[in-house]
Amino acid sequence: MAMRVSNVLLLLVLSALGLAPGARAASPASAPKITVLYDAFGDPGPLRKDWGFAALIEVDGKRILFDTGNDAEVFAHNVKTAGVDLSRLDSVVLSHRHSDHTAGLAAVLATNPDVVIHAPQEGFGLFGSSLPSSFYRKDAALPARQRYFDGNPPQTLVLGSAWPDAHFNPLAKTTEIAPGVWAIITTSDVPGTRELRELSLAVRTPQGLLLVVGCSHPGLPLIVAEAAKLDPHLHLVIGGFHYVNADDAAIANVIQALQPFKIDFIAPGHCTGEATFAALQAAYGQRYLYAGLGVTLILDKAEGPDRPRGKAAAFSPGERDAYRALARTGEHAHAEPIAAR
């Protein structure tokens, strides 16, 4: 049964499951849309689940890849199966340096070596950067052989990247990377990721902002607050919220912290966490959208199916077991609950 919400409906389609051609044609070509290409849960048909995140954003004729997942082979399989042509990307945004968001970049560069990659600027960072040689104290009394560069350093130290031939655009502040598209930068002050810089993507649409987050290490409320400076009306927030093993109090805190913001729909994925999925379903009801692997969300005024929404978007038992196994390993296995900030 179709329904209209806030004068606009997000038409949800599972593109990986052989969507009928007519279903896509019903939406205008200009309608912004986001397709989840990498995650550890979903009903993706031939797409392969793994811990990590990647999504394709298509808006105003632009194709922006947000993150690249945890494994280059899995990522390459998923984009090929989903019919995504990496050679047609206009740009790539890497949210942060963790491998479950960057490992698939090798597959991107193999197909599109000249694509511009927006990434957070960090001193001695994975994506390459530069520093003035004045960053360190000097002692002219030392003999030359005991001094950096024999006491005559270059004015600027150019630092290497894990992908030396890639075209990185390091960002140190929120930047409009295309008309109506911003890379929002925030910095974590959370134990375990303190000083980590993270990019989120904000896209202006007729319905409000589309906000795509990778892992939300700095805290989802902080990222939402930064996005609200661009437009206080957030139409959709989607991605990893990083409450994968948070306790009930921390989850309740983040839901409360989001209440003052105007958010039409919320579509958590990746490192959000099972308990947080359930709590957000209860809090947002029909404004909660399922965003598992293979799902495409189309920001469209046309009426469409009213699912998977709300509590109908729960895990299957198999998905729950797989997600829990993946969540217990790697960067997301935190010793302490992740509190809202």
Rank of each mutant, 00 (worst) to 15 (best):
A25Y: 02
I34S: 01
I34W: 04
T35W: 09
G42L: 13
R48G: 01
G52S: 04
G52R: 00
F53E: 04
V59W: 02
D67F: 06
T68L: 13
N70W: 02
A72Q: 10
V79L: 06
K80M: 08
R88A: 15
S91G: 03
V93W: 05
V93I: 06
S95I: 03
H98K: 05
A110R: 14
I117D: 07
I117E: 07
Q121C: 04
Q121T: 00
G125P: 05
G128M: 10
R137T: 06
D139F: 15
A144G: 03
Q146A: 12
G151H: 04
T156V: 15
L157N: 00
L159Q: 15
S161D: 13
A172F: 11
E176G: 08
E176H: 00
W182N: 10
T186R: 15
R194M: 12
P218S: 07
P221Y: 05
A246G: 12
A246F: 08
A246Y: 06
I251N: 05
Q256P: 01
F261Q: 11
A267C: 03
G273I: 12
F277D: 10
Y288C: 06
A291M: 09
G294T: 11
L297H: 14
L297R: 08
E303T: 09
R309G: 05
F315C: 07
S316M: 04
Y323C: 01
G330Q: 03
E331F: 15
H332F: 13
A335Q: 10
